[in-house]
Design a binder for these strands. Sequence first.
RNA 1: CGGGGCGUGGCGCAGUCUGGUAGCGCAUCUGGUUUGGGACCAGAGGGUCGGAGGUUCAAAUCCUCUCGCCCCGACCA
Length: 568
Amino acid sequence: MRLSRYPVNTAKETPADAEVISHQLMLRAGLIRRLAAGIYTFLPMGLRAVRKVEKIIREEMDRAGAYEMLMPAVQPAELWQESARWEQYGPELLRFKDRHDREFVIGPTAEEVITDVARRELKSYRQLPVNFYQIQMKFRDEIRPRFGVMRGREFLMKDAYSFHADQESLAEGYAAMKTAYTRMFERMGLTFRAVRADTGSIGGSASEEFQVLADSGEDAIAVSDADDYAANLELAPTPVYDGKRPAATQSLATVPTPATKTIADVSKLLGVDATRCVKTLIVEGSDGGVVAMVIRGDHEMNAVKAQKVAGVASPLRMATAQRVLAGTGTEPGFLGPVGLKCRIVVDHAAAALADFVCGANARDAHLTGVNWGRDLPEPETADLRNVVAGDPSPSGQGKLAIRRGIEVGHIFQLGRKYSEAMQASVLDPAGKPLTPLMGCYGIGVTRVVAAAIEQNHDDKGIIWPDPIAPYTVLLVTLNHDRSEAVRNAADSLYAELGAAGIDVLYDDRDARPGVKFADAELLGIPHCVIIGDRGLAAGQLEYRHRRTGATGELPVNGLLDALRARLA
RNA sequence: CGGGGCGUGGCGCAGUCUGGUAGCGCAUCUGGUUUGGGACCAGAGGGUCGGAGGUUCAAAUCCUCUCGCCCCGACCA
């Protein structure tokens, strides 16, 4: 493509409403434009990157034996009523009526449609297993769309659905998808982890997220430094209390701590490390009472884990100050497990403490030298906290580090939730109806593009990984309009590279070098070849690698071969 | 939905407090000079100041209502 004729506008200034780097760069590089909140147009340059991602996805899905199809974006309400998600999904599901007053949704996902396809098309167990996929626009009316295309309302998604006669087959299909996903993201040149995830509202057994690691990611994940263990922070288990703790060396004492309500303040006032303090959080119980959660001072309570404790309300609700007073007789800020008048559940790490500090259940006072089993009963323990960096990995190998990630893919073993609700069945070998097990596998295509930029950029602009770059090679002329030699050489090189099947962008604009170089860096095309009078006289071209900044000379004759060696 | 903020040419902003000829930079167009890191000179086009109503001799500016957008939170296959 000749840049002089290419409909792309770059901007020096960062749009005011773009928060994250990928959003800023996509706007500045002329990849996308906002149409409404969370709804974006992909301009030609941006679409190129999307298509590259799609191509890799298609190749790997096809390799895994899946069949591409295309389902409607607009889906009738009846299907959603059948699966009961019409009621369950809430306002995130965009609903509307057609001219005949019939209700429809714009699909946020397609389990209902594919299950409808399956019950019509699949008749025999002999047709299983089978995996269908599509790449289609989805719409989710997010409460707060943000970060440009990374968390938009309308987005392009690859969704796949598999059908199986038994659990073993489902597990195989799931494993095949995991392999395919791993290949895809590797091919895209992204640094990612497959992360154990909460199955959430979708239900089902196994589930893993594919997270692109980036500091700006919305999800916190715990990764082992010694093996490939990775789990969503919400899910990573902490070590179970082993019944061992240091012997008590201090005696129980009440100390005055006026207006000292936070762990940080208590720790400072008493000169005791937060790791030897304990905080007591009061949550609503499922029986109308309250439950006390005791956590080490430096730890954070994990809502997902806490609400799984029997007798605790789910979803988790913190008790109000009045409820705390009514349920425990003490006000927040000075709560402690000693003599507390409600059920107490203690985190494993807090249970392992000796000589610790906690609230005295009296205004302006704390207890020091507290010991389980002596000053209060041995605790009921549970995993209540988030893992922290340095905790041992649940895999048994190494220690955990906390990283941030962008969820670009998610694979599920769904089970029979939809096939049962929508009565999809095939005949088994005995001629009896068999309800197939399902798996579903998603990839946020447009989000992958944003995540790739989030992970690959510098202060000058985008640094595309070769496989998903809109163009692979950028040809830049200097002194374009006045030097016939440059123009002729560039024109023929452009034709040569194009004929060789290389995606080449040709900056043939009559612009100053600074403008061209700045745009080259902003656009982030991986390989840049500069054609100027100076080098041309010596039969040389200048080469620059966007990622490494490495420069070098390439011969005019034999550019193609020299480039190919670098494209690898 | 709760809290905070912002709507002024395509983009970034000033002007609003204290009412009085709509301005600056970038971008765009024309002509000229320039040409290896975002040039310079001269000129040009482009704005119902988000919208509606009100106060006033006069409203971007004050008042009321409304719409949109951004940030934080809750939420999130």
